[in-house]
């Protein structure tokens, strides 16, 4: 119980700190409060420049809004942040789901080949991950655009391609280490089949780390989707974050930061709890 409350406190603090950090970065960024309307020759006077509220005043106002359930208004799009996020979240979540499924499936398939030919499996992983790691997110997105994949599944595919190298390399290392562990060597010496050893002895040992890797891959895919959605013009949270950053849309950017921080912290928390439970079982 105490552990759970500590984790919850940690969650709240991380989210609040993330929001404050994001607000500080946007508030003090050059060009804050400036819009292209200010160069409109049809206007004789400048549209009043945002009086730039102090960071502390903004933050108090922001938290008070949260307590009331009001996420505020986007300065550049002139719409409630809640609506913007609600409209775009399904697109990004679809992208994340597709990306993670593809990356994990490909990595898992490669790791299974280690049952038959560890050397081939390691080589395939090193080559495929090495090549894909060198390709920038922008190039992957452009390639998919040229292939006509400028949609949420296309963004998901791009996220999968970008996240795959990290997952594949780590997964392969993890499994290779597990194959070397004394109890696995002992099990193989006793004549158990490779599949049985893999399922009964290798996977349970790797499970806690795999859960951590799952959390990490979620963060990576969300990060990858920001430039990908912006380039492919996919209307998701990533595209919204990109636009908000370019336009210095304080409220929108802080809310997106809070959303992503909450999502990542929450999933990490859950995975940690699952990992702890598994570790107990393995012991």
């Amino acid at each position: 119980m105490r552990g759970l409350s500590r984790s919850l406190l940690q969650f709240v603090c991380t989210v609040l700190l993330g929001a404050l950090l994001s607000a500080s970065l946007v508030r003090f960024a050059p060009g804050y409060g400036m819009t292209e309307d200010l160069l409109d020759t049809r206007l004789s006077s400048l549209t009043p420049i945002d009086p730039a509220p102090s960071l502390s005043a903004y933050y108090v106002q922001f938290l008070a809004g949260y307590v009331r359930g009001d996420l505020g208004q986007s300065a550049t799009l002139g719409r409630p942040v809640r609506d913007l996020v609600a409209e775009r979240a399904p697109t990004t979540l679809t992208g994340v789901a597709i990306g993670l499924t593809l990356a994990w499936t490909a990595s898992s398939l490669l790791s299974f080949t280690s049952l038959y030919s560890p050397a081939l499996s390691l080589s395939l992983t090193a080559i495929s991950a090495g090549i894909l790691q060198c390709v920038p997110a922008g190039i992957v997105a452009l390639l998919l655009f040229l292939l006509g994949w400028h949609s949420a599944p296309g963004a998901g595919l791009a996220a999968g391609i970008l996240v795959y190298p990290r997952i594949a390399q780590y997964l392969m290392q993890l499994i290779a280490q597990a194959w070397q562990s004394p109890h696995v060597v002992h099990a193989r010496a006793k004549g158990l089949t490779e599949w049985r050893v893999f399922l009964r002895h290798v996977l349970p040992v790797c499970a806690p780390q795999l859960l951590s890797l799952l959390g990490l891959s979620l963060i990576l895919s969300l990060g990858a989707l920001i430039p990908v959605e912006a380039i492919l013009d996919v209307p998701g949270i990533g595209q919204l974050a990109w636009q908000a950053a370019l336009a210095r849309d304080l409220n929108l950017l802080v809310n997106i930061t809070v959303l992503i921080t909450a999502l990542v912290t929450c999933s990490n928390l859950l995975l940690e709890l699952c990992g702890n439970a598994l570790r107990g079982e393995v012991r």
Binding site: A29, P30, G31, Y32, G33, M34, T35, E36, L38, L39, T41, L46, I49, L246, A247, R248
Partner: peptide, 25 residues
């Protein structure tokens, strides 16, 4: 410079020497 930074310089802080821009009519 990116547009918001450029606008800040020419419309608010005046921290620039010369600026190249267009006008649309």
């Amino acid at each position: 410079l990116d547009f918001p930074s450029l606008i800040e310089r020419i419309a608010k802080s005046f921290e620039y020497d010369a600026c190249l821009l267009g006008l649309v009519f």
